[in-house]
Amino acid sequence: MAKKKSGGWLESAKTILYAGLIAIGIRTIAFEPFNIPSGSMIPTLLVGDYLFVSKFSYGYSRYSMPFGPNLFSGRILGRVPERGDVAVFKLPRDPSQDYIKRIIGLPGDRIQVRGGILQINGQAVKREPIGTYLAEDRESRIPTREYKETLPGGRVHDIIEQSDDMPLDNTQEYRVPDGHVFAMGDNRDNSLDSRVQSGVGFIPIENLVGRAEFIFFSIDGNRASWWEIWAWPMAVRWDRLFSAVR
C-alpha cells in the first residue's frame, strides 16, 4: 500500500508539472492574457478589460518568455508591426512594466502633433468628429470629444480628446530610429506614451510582447471586482466579451 500511495503522489506531481509546462509553452509561443489597469486607451480599451495578446505576431524575443531571461538578443522570426496595431510592450526604461498602446510610427517615420492633429511624415492624419464621449476615470465621468482617425494605409480607429490645447497636443517632430516604433494612447490627452521621451520614448522592436487580439472578459470596477461572481450580472460589460481589438 505504501508503494501505491507513493506512486500516486508521483503521478500527481508529474501531472502538475506537465500542466505547468504546457501553460508556459502556450503563454510563450501562442497567447498571453493581460488586463487593462488605466484609461490611456479609451475608447478602444476600458479599465477592467481582459484580453488575449498573440505572441507570434511579431516573432519572439527574450520578452516573450516569463520574466524575460537574457538568453538572446533581437527577435526570432521577427516582423515589424503594422501601423495601427494595438500592442503590448515592455517599458524601455523599466522592462518589468507592461504597457499597451497603438503603434503610430514605424522605423524612419517623422511623427508630430500640432493643435491636436497627428502628423505623419509631414502629412496631417484625417480626423472626423463623432460626438461627445463620457470617459469614466475611476469615480468621475469626464466629457471629451470623440473622433474617427484614419491612419496612412487605411486603418481606422476612434480616439478621444479633452481639447486640442493640452500639453501633448503640440510636440516637437520625432524621427523614429531604425529598430524602433512610436506608440500613442487613443485617449490622447491622458496617455504616457512615446511623445514623452523621458517616460516612454521610442520603443525597441525587441521590447514588443505581442498584438492585442480580442477581449475575453470585461468588468466595471466601480460596480464589482472580477472575483465577485454574484455581482457579475450588473458589473460585467457583456457587449464587450469576445470582441476584437481594432
Rank of each mutant, 00 (worst) to 15 (best):
P81R: 02
E82N: 00
R83C: 09
R83D: 08
G84V: 00
G84F: 07
G84L: 01
D85M: 01
V86H: 04
A87Q: 03
A87W: 00
V88I: 03
V88L: 03
F89P: 08
K90M: 15
K90D: 13
K90E: 13
R93D: 09
D94M: 11
D94Y: 13
P95D: 02
P95N: 06
S96I: 00
S96M: 03
Q97D: 07
D98A: 15
D98L: 15
Y99H: 15
I100S: 10
I100Y: 12
K101F: 13
K101A: 13
R102P: 14
G108S: 05
G108L: 04
R110P: 03
I111W: 11
Q112I: 04
Q112K: 00
Q112S: 03
Q112N: 02
Q112V: 03
V113R: 02
V113M: 05
G115W: 03
G115C: 02
G116V: 01
L118S: 01
L118A: 12
I120E: 04
G122E: 03
Q123H: 09
A124Q: 07
V125K: 08
V125P: 00
V125M: 00
R127F: 13
E128R: 11
P129N: 15
I130H: 08
G131P: 09
T132G: 12
E136R: 05
E136M: 05
D137H: 07
D137S: 05
R138V: 10
E139T: 04
E139M: 07
E139F: 11
E139Q: 11
S140Q: 10
S140I: 01
R141S: 05
I142F: 05
T144H: 09
T144L: 01
Y147I: 12
Y147P: 11
Y147V: 12
Y147M: 12
K148H: 11
T150A: 12
L151E: 02
P152N: 05
G153A: 07
R155H: 15
V156C: 08
V156D: 05
V156S: 08
H157I: 13
H157V: 13
D158E: 15
I159H: 06
E161R: 03
Q162F: 07
Q162V: 00
D164N: 00
D165T: 10
M166Q: 07
M166D: 07
P167K: 06
D169I: 12
N170V: 03
T171R: 07
T171W: 06
T171H: 08
T171Y: 06
Q172K: 11
Q172F: 01
Y174C: 14
R175F: 11
R175Y: 07
V176Q: 02
D178E: 15
G179V: 02
G179R: 06
G179E: 04
V181M: 10
A183Y: 08
M184Y: 09
M184Q: 15
R188D: 14
D189A: 00
D189R: 05
D189K: 01
S191M: 10
L192H: 01
L192W: 04
D193K: 11
D193T: 09
D193L: 14
S194N: 07
V196L: 15
V196C: 13
V196R: 15
G199N: 09
V200G: 06
F202G: 07
I203P: 03
I203V: 11
P204M: 14
I205F: 12
I205C: 12
E206G: 06
N207V: 15
